[in-house]
Structures are given as structure tokens and as C-alpha cells.
Simulated scan of single mutants.
Amino acid sequence: MDHANQTGKIEKLCVLVCAFNESGHIGQVVRGIIEHQACEVVVVDDGSSDNTATLAEQAGARVLRNSENLGKGASLKRGFEHVCNQGFDAVVVVDGDGQHDPAEIGCFLDAYERTRIPVLVGNRMADTTGMPYIRRWTNRTMAWILNRLVRIYVADPPCGYRFYRTDVLPFIMSDLPRFAFEFDVLVHAALRHIRIDSVRVSTIYNRKRRSHVAPIRDAWLLLQVVRHHFLLSRRNPAFGSFPE
């Protein structure tokens, strides 16, 4: 950990994949990561009813199993606790549905080595060809909300393709469920003055695949995040900081 902070290089990297009923993609995702990056791959199987866990193990991943479907937030939290406990310098989060190009993991590592910025979020908004209109609108709306809430600009806040230096994870961990977790993490980072930047990644969508996102439920969760942090900022404007 200290070596990564002093040199800007990541010596021990984990790639974390959260997956729920992804038997059609998970093997290819894990093999693609291993092909492009020398690292440990950890898959959190979120109570899948198919053979996601078995296929992930056969492809070379270490698998952590949730006994039931707890949602992406709980899976990310479990994965983050694992990488912190195992002494990794950094973690790259990749979705298990094949919509992230494993070859672009190197883009996050290059960006970190150049900038030392400890939280990097994928940005698909530079080329939205193939992205459904509702997703483009959602991404831009969430970017606007985040900017208004904590005065930072992240072009693509819902993007799950991310890099975190592990020493910042305890300071930005969220207890919120499902997809609200990822937005809340960015809010926590901003409030603690942990630097955040974006890395351009490809826009890959499988229109035949059913999304795990539930628009009404997740919009309600997002509103709860915004309300919570708005009230907190009203009570305590100097919420806290993380020393660089």
C-alpha cells in the first residue's frame, strides 16, 4: 500500500466483478481480464440461481458467494472489504455482463500513474453511439445532481467501470443498497476532498439483455441519497476530509 502511494505504481491489483445470473457472460469476462491484466480476479456471486459461480471459478476467478440476492451495493461492499483485508493496492471494478472492455483496465492504471488520483470513474459519454436515450438522459441528470450536491463534475456517475486505491475505501464506503451505493460513494469521496476524475471507456450495450436496473426503485433510492446528504450539509457544512 505504501509503495503504491510513494511511486504511483500499483504492485498488487485486484479486479472485482459483481455478478447475478451472468452465466452467459461471466466466463468470457473473467478470461478477458486475465488475458489483458496480470492480477487476481474476484467475483462476488450475488445469489445467482444459475451456474455463474462455477463458470467464474473455471475461468480462473476466486468466487465469494452471497447466500441470497442482496443487490450490487452489498456485493461491492463485500468485495471492497475483501480487497482491503487481502492487502491489495488498488481495485478495478468491472461489471459481469460483458459491457466493459477488459482491455481498458490498463487505461485506468495509466491514468492513476500519471495523476495519482485515487478514484477514477469510466466515462462513456464521449461517444454515446448505441447508448439508449434513457441511459444518456439518466447519466447527464445524475452528473448535474452530483455537481449541484457536492460541486464536482463526473461525466458518467452511473458507470460501474471504476478504479479505487484501496486506502481510500474505508473513508468512502456506503451502506446504501443496490445501485445507489455507487452514487453515494462518489458523494462521500467529494465530501472528504478525495480527488475524483474520469477515464474514457467504450460504450457497449447488449439490447437483448434485460437490465438489472429498476428505474422507479433506483430513482427513489437516488432521491434518498440526495436528501440525506443535503440535510447533512445543512447541519454540518464542513463534513470532513481525508488527508492527501
Rank of each mutant, 00 (worst) to 15 (best):
R162Y: 02
L146S: 00
T7M: 11
T141F: 14
V83K: 03
D89H: 03
K77C: 08
V43W: 03
T203C: 13
L55M: 11
H3R: 12
Q99D: 13
V226K: 03
L232T: 11
G32R: 04
R209I: 01
N21I: 08
L186D: 00
G98V: 05
T128Y: 00
V121A: 00
P132T: 04
D197W: 00
G98I: 05
D50F: 06
L149E: 04
L231N: 12
R165Y: 09
E11D: 13
R124M: 02
G98T: 06
W220N: 11
G87I: 05
P170M: 10
L231G: 07
A19C: 06
C18I: 08
A38V: 11
G73F: 04
P215N: 11
P170C: 10
H228S: 06
A219N: 11
W220Y: 08
R235T: 05
E68A: 14
A61P: 09
V226Q: 03
V187G: 01
A19L: 04
V93I: 14
D156N: 15
S211R: 06
C39Q: 07
P102D: 02
T166S: 15
D197C: 02
R31S: 15
S67K: 09
D97V: 05
D175Q: 14
P102W: 03
E81R: 12
L76Q: 05
G130Y: 00
R227H: 12
Y205C: 09
Q86V: 03
L176G: 02
A238L: 12
N51W: 01
L120R: 00
R62Y: 10
D127E: 11
N5W: 07
F181Q: 01
M1Y: 04
G122F: 02
T141H: 13
D110S: 13
R178D: 15
I117F: 01
R148G: 15
E113F: 03
D184S: 14
T128V: 15
L146I: 00
D110P: 00
L221I: 03
Q86C: 08
H229N: 10
S198Y: 01
N139T: 15
N51A: 11
K12F: 08
N85T: 09
Y161N: 11
D89M: 03
V92H: 04
Y205T: 14
R200G: 05
A214H: 12
R192I: 04
I194N: 00
D218Q: 12
T115E: 11
A4E: 09
E104C: 03
R162F: 01
M131I: 11
Y153A: 06
N206E: 07
L149A: 06
T7R: 10
H100S: 11
S23I: 05
G47M: 07
N123W: 00
Y112S: 06
I172C: 07
P243K: 10
V42M: 09
P177E: 13
G47I: 06
R62T: 13
K12G: 06
G47F: 06
E244R: 05
K72R: 11
E22K: 15
R200E: 14
R200S: 09
Q28L: 09
V93N: 07
N236E: 13
A59E: 05
P237G: 05
R234C: 12
D218I: 04
F183R: 04
N69G: 01
